[in-house]
Nucleic acid binder design. Structure first.
Lengths: 191, 191
DNA sequence: CTAATTTTTGACCTGTAGTTCAAGAAATAG
DNA sequence: CTATTTCTTGAACTACAGGTCAAAAATTAG
């Protein structure tokens, strides 16, 4: 009972995520969120508690979605190298084709909030570890397929790929597409 | 003539840089700058015009210093791989030994301001290009020394190293030292 | 229909960001 | 010593951030 909600919380959360992603935490104002979601300020606070809490939920959503997309994408048919290449290209394209270059929300968050917000920092670290796990698993899968040299230390390699990806998304803020593609190819050469 | 300055502009600028580096642009308030520099608010505005202009000067200082340190460090005696390793370790240690993890100010800036402040973004891009040039030159130097395989595309390799470095400094916000060292070693293996 | 419950909303509040400025202080020129 | 110049400083100002709240609206239980 009680008055029914006028908005879908998941939709509002997704829109809030987009806004935080594009503008960062500090530079997103309640007014921005009202504009992005179409929900009045009071309702937002009623539904989500505070700007920080809403941001936490948005970050969770981002990490969850990101992990799902990664898993799905790496498990499609193709060699290990092909799959990583396609995945990296996907993310670079995502960065470059958007109306504004905004990189990876998790990285942006840790860059902005490391040393200020331990919870957010830990959340991002968990996400990074998850990515390394997914990469490791894909490499090991490739080793079983005979796709990847069995002498390779899968986790060490996965850590390098995660590092390369983080770097790539930073580079994608200022470099052009051909250069970024070239970086992807050179990076993946050793696989 | 006129009343003499009470402070050394270079010292104030260096302190402002430290503050922007640690807290980011948006989250640094005039009050923070007053505390960090010991100079009254009015004087800061008198000397530097605006927060944005002061930040611009601070960013310039950071890029300038960074390029100098890089050049100096890569030109010390040792093989190419040794020099890159020492340089990467230096930066990781810098990140980890400070009182707060703050990464690279240039990356932080472009992460926070890409799509909002074209001037700052271009400034960072120039810095990144400069780093790639320095890396390229060092690799070519290694190729002449017989240090590095001559079949290598020096610039492509340098781009990868710059990307790895960017990634490494992001990873340094959340990962521990042994893992980061391992990443450095694996990354440099192919040199 | 009444009571109880849950949302919605904009008005309102407090604090601070970023800036300007007027008044005074410290120098030098003549 | 006076005029001129340049610096220093905190007070004052406007705008907005982040959040609270009371009143009205929409539902269901009985």
């Amino acid at each position: 009972m009680g008055r029914p909600k006028k908005f879908e919380p998941d939709v509002v959360l997704a829109r809030a995520m987009e806004t935080f992603w594009s503008k960062g935490y500090a530079d997103t104002s309640p007014a921005d969120l009202v504009e992005a979601t179409g929900v009045a300020k009071g309702s937002l606070y009623h539904a989500f508690g505070s700007k920080r809490e809403l941001f936490g939920r948005a970050l969770d959503l981002y990490c969850q979605t990101g992990a799902e997309v990664t898993e799905e994408f790496l498990s499609r048919p193709g060699t290990t190298k092909e799959r990583f290449r396609a995945f990296f290209v996907l993310l670079v394209d995502l960065d470059l084709d958007g109306p504004v270059r905004r990189g990876c929300m998790a990285q942006n968050t840790v860059t902005e909030l490391a040393g200020q917000d331990e919870l957010a920092t830990r959340r991002v670290h968990r996400m990074e570890e998850r990515m390394v796990q997914l990469f490791t698993a894909r490499i090991q899968h490739g080793q079983r397929d005979g796709d990847v040299d069995r002498g390779l230390d899968a986790r060490a390699r996965a850590l390098c790929l995660q590092t390369a990806l983080a770097g790539l998304r930073t580079m994608a803020l200022t470099f052009d597409r051909p250069t970024l593609y070239q970086i992807i190819d050179t990076t993946l050469e050793g696989l």
